[in-house]
Nucleic acid binder design. Structure first.
Lengths: 222, 222
DNA sequence: ATCTGTGAATCAATTCACAGCC
DNA sequence: GGCTGTGAATTGATTCACAGAT
């Protein structure tokens, strides 16, 4: 047993559950900075995030030992460490498929660029929409997907099409070399096993919320 | 053996992780019906959902024993049972706060009404938007929230405002008696402990996706 | 022969509780 | 005295594996 020198390759894995909470901490910490807060204890952070202090400490300990005993965490430094871990120190290029209502909303979404993501392009299959501007980005034809992804080094695809076109959109993204897809269509996508998909479906979210509402009431997780 | 009369109160609790998968099964089953499929085995369902058969069987067993050994599950009956469990046999009324891009997209969202949810109203604080139509629903002023919620028995609020207004929107919903909130604003909301919040944040989803992308690649859960 | 339903076993996540540092 | 970092204990979720139903 002699683990000290930690080669980047076999960096200890952060548990999935903790990974999903890191962006939450990041958001809270960023907000705290704008409010002039420079130190936070695990207890305070937990209060802001709706979690408990032990979980916060455990989560942050996966990043390394960046707190100060008796004091708390330096907000700015923690922001840096979380960004480093999430790979947010360099920008990510994103392509949005579908220039309808949702594609529009997503592309206009302010929280995008402020968080290290840049919309390289919005593509649509409808030639009538090509050339129009959506949130400062010109809509291009879906046939250009491959060259957009290659030329612009796009690594993430966002599907904002109607459900009927979503599987086709996923296949086009995969064919263009995309390995990470964020899917907003109400459809379970079928993709090769080396492609990551996260699906966000409004209907499903409501159904889950409804379940807890009908039950006792005070449940669910933010 | 006589389980029939199951006192609503002490119905066995379904694990949270299983609850979040029920809507996925529901979506797949509904699609199967339109394709004329009437029977599915846990193995087939697992393939369609990207899960394994044991998990599917365990999840479905929480609903009761509705499969047939040696055969599989009757699709239509399973749909009914999942809907019953999720409380989707009766409609839910929803109010959307924020008539911007996102509110627009959400209200127009087809998957809404088809899944037991009805948008009672869209409200906005901007009087200029009041009276305009969004997806067949007239935009009303946020001051009417209380009466809308009361008169129309609305039980779920959806926040589709800019982050700066989201906390205020949440407070208005809570004041109007709403106990379940679906939040699309990039902000962690502070609400009383008897209120359920589910937050969906595009930026966070991308960050999580980015983490797995930068790491090895093939990860994440649909 | 096939496929469900479910205890038992395993694996992951959370919480506890306290030693170590400020 | 206050707060972090972390093993140990606990709780929850997943997977195994097989008895039981058709």
């Amino acid at each position: 047993m002699k683990p000290p020198s930690r080669p980047e390759a076999l960096r200890r894995r952060i548990p999935d559950a903790a990974v999903t909470r890191l962006p939450v901490y990041l958001q809270i910490l960023n907000k705290s900075i704008t409010e002039g807060v420079s130190q936070l204890s695990s207890d305070q952070l937990a209060g802001l995030a709706g979690l408990n202090a032990a979980k916060v400490r455990k989560d942050l300990s996966y990043l390394g030992s960046y707190g100060t005993r008796g004091v708390g965490y330096d907000v700015a430094y923690l922001v840096y460490q979380i960004k480093r871990e999430l790979g947010l120190l360099n920008d990510w290029k994103v392509v949005v498929v579908g220039a309808g209502n949702l594609g529009n909303a997503l592309t206009n979404y302010a929280g995008f660029s402020s968080r290290g993501f840049e919309v390289s392009a919005v593509v649509d299959i409808d030639s009538a929409k090509v050339g129009k501007k959506v949130g400062g980005v010109v809509v291009r034809h879906v046939d250009d997907l491959l060259s957009i992804v290659n030329n612009d080094k796009v690594s993430i695809g966002v599907i904002a099409t109607p459900p009927a076109s979503a599987q086709r959109a996923a296949e086009l993204l995969v064919a263009a070399g995309i390995k990470s897809i964020l899917n907003f269509a109400a459809l379970v996508l079928t993709v090769p096993s080396d492609v990551s998909v996260r699906s966000v479906d409004l209907g499903m979210e409501l159904q889950i919320l409804g379940y807890y509402e009908q039950l006792n009431r005070p449940v669910a997780c933010q």
